[in-house]
C-alpha cells in the first residue's frame, strides 16, 4: 500500500530522551476507517507514539504523514488537532471547573480563533449535537454538574464524548478502560466500536479482555518498534510476543 492511500503513515520514526530510545525506527500504517489496537509491555513506546503523532514530542528522525500528504512532524499540537486528530489521555483530563455541557461545547467542532469564540453562540445544530453526545455517553442527567465532581468512569466517558464532539478523522485513545468496572469496560468497548464506523481509531490498551472484545487488528510494540501485527489470536501465539510478555 502506498502512503497516499493511508490515513496515517509512520516510517522510521525514532525518538530519544537522554540517550534512551523511546521509539526505534517505528513504522505503522492506518487505513481510513480502520480501528487498531496497540499493545505492548511498559516502556514499549505506546504513549511516546501518541505524543509524536499529536505534536507533543518532535521525532528525531522519520516521516509522519496524515492522509498521505500532510507532514505532522513540522506542526504544533493545535494545528494537528485541527487537521482532525483527537486524543484521549490515559488519565482522564477534563476541565474540572466547567460543567459537563461546557466541556462538550469547548470540544465541539467550531472555529478555534479567539475572536470567533468571543462572539460564539450555541446554535440549534450545535445544541442538538451536544444533546446527542450527552445521550450516547449517558451523561445527560449530569449536564449541569461540574466535571470535577464526576466519578472516574464518568470522566472517561466525558472525555470520549469530547472526542466525539471534536469529530476527528482519527482518534487516539490511551487506555480507555483503566480503572473501570467490568460493566463499564463492556459499555466502553461497545461505544468505541460504534465510533469506529465513522472514524479511524487507535486504541492503546493493557487489558487483553478489552482488546479481545474489540476484535480488531492488533499491533504489538516492543522497545520502540513493531514486534508483531495481526489478529489477537495470531499475535498471542507468536513466540516472540510470549517471550516479551513473560519478560525474557
Amino acid at each position: 500500500m502506498s502512503a497516499e492511500d493511508t490515513l496515517l503513515y509512520l516510517d522510521g520514526v525514532s525518538v530519544s530522551f537522554d540517550g534512551f530510545r523511546a521509539l526505534n525506527s517505528l513504522s505503522l500504517l492506518i487505513e481510513p476507517g480502520e480501528m487498531r489496537a496497540i499493545i505492548g509491555p511498559n516502556g514499549a513506546g505506546k504513549t511516546t507514539m501518541m505524543d509524536v503523532i499529536t505534536g507533543k514530542t518532535r521525532p528525531d528522525t522519520g516521516t509522519i504523514l496524515f492522509e498521505g500528504k500532510t507532514d505532522l512532524t513540522a506542526m504544533r499540537e493545535a494545528g494537528i488537532a485541527n487537521l482532525g486528530i483527537g486524543r484521549k489521555f490515559q488519565r482522564p483530563t477534563v476541565f474540572e471547573n466547567h460543567t459537563v455541557w461546557d466541556n462538550l461545547e469547548l470540544a465541539l467542532k467550531a472555529p478555534r480563533r479567539p475572536l470567533k469564540t468571543l462572539t460564539y453562540a450555541v446554535g440549534r445544530d450545535d445544541r442538538l449535537r451536544i444533546e446527542e453526545i450527552l445521550d450516547i455517553t449517558r451523561l445527560s442527567p449530569k449536564r449541569e454538574r461540574q466535571a470535577g465532581s464526576l466519578s472516574h468512569g464518568e470522566k472517561q466517558w466525558l472525555e470520549i464524548g469530547m472526542l466525539l464532539a471534536q469529530d476527528p478523522k482519527l482518534l487516539l485513545v490511551d487506555e480507555p478502560v483503566a480503572g473501570m468496572t467490568d460493566a463499564e469496560t463492556e459499555q466502553t468497548a461497545r461505544l468505541l466500536k460504534d465510533i469506529a464506523g465513522k472514524h479511524s481509531v487507535i486504541v492503546v490498551e493493557h487489558d487483553m479482555v478489552f482488546v479481545r472484545e474489540l476484535g480488531v487488528k492488533v499491533t504489538v510494540l516492543h522497545e520502540g518498534s513493531v514486534l508483531a501485527e495481526g489478529s489477537l489470536d495470531a499475535v498471542s501465539a507468536n513466540q516472540q510476543v510470549i517471550d516479551v510478555y513473560l519478560g525474557r
Binding site: 486524543r87 476541565f95 480563533r113
Partner: peptide, 25 residues
Amino acid sequence: ASKLGKVLVAVRDAESRVRFLGYET
C-alpha cells in the same frame, strides 16, 4: 462569560488539553 472566557479558564486548568482540542492557547 463568553466561550472565549471558558477557553481561558480551561487554559488555566489544563493548558495542554486545550491545545489537543485544537485551540492555539
